[in-house]
């Protein structure tokens, strides 16, 4: 199964990026093969709808689990339709988060923020 994490650097020991849609990279970890690849987040350059595009990219990558600090309501619609579960990260590196996930220590991220689109007025 493939897990995605928004990360600041192309390094398994990278910190988790606080932004989902505009993270510079996604770390994709394959639990079966125990391998990881880094994807440039092309959505980060979007004028708008970055969360949607980032979510689409992860759907297309056949990701089934995301570990992130938060995500917006537009991204949520795409992730739900793509049957992807989102878990809340813990303090620490991407590697530590993957280990925590594999030990069932992470909680489902249920609170979806309304997004910073429309300047937070929505």
């Amino acid at each position: 199964m493939r897990i995605a994490l928004p990360v600041n650097d192309k390094d398994i020991k990278s910190e988790i990026c606080p932004s989902f849609g505009r993270t510079p990279y996604f770390l994709i970890y394959d639990t079966a093969e125990k391998s990881s690849v880094f994807l440039d987040n092309l959505a980060a350059q979007s004028a708008g709808g970055a969360g949607i595009k980032a979510a689409q990219m992860l759907v297309d990558q056949s990701v089934k689990v995301i570990i992130a600090p938060r995500y917006g309501e537009n991204a949520a619609k795409v992730l739900i339709d793509g049957d992807i579960k989102v878990y809340k990260n813990i303090v620490g590196t991407a590697e530590e988060n993957i280990k925590a996930y594999e030990k069932n220590q992470l909680d489902i991220l249920a609170d979806i923020h309304p997004g910073f689109h429309n300047h937070g007025n929505k």
């Binding site: 708008g48 949607i52 537009n74 739900i80 339709d81 793509g82």
Partner: peptide
């Protein structure tokens, strides 16, 4: 180019975008 469309199991439209 505005990312107003996405596809999970079906096409999703973001009208406001």
């Amino acid at each position: 180019k505005f990312n107003a469309l996405a596809f999970g199991e079906k096409v999703i439209l973001f009208k406001e975008i």
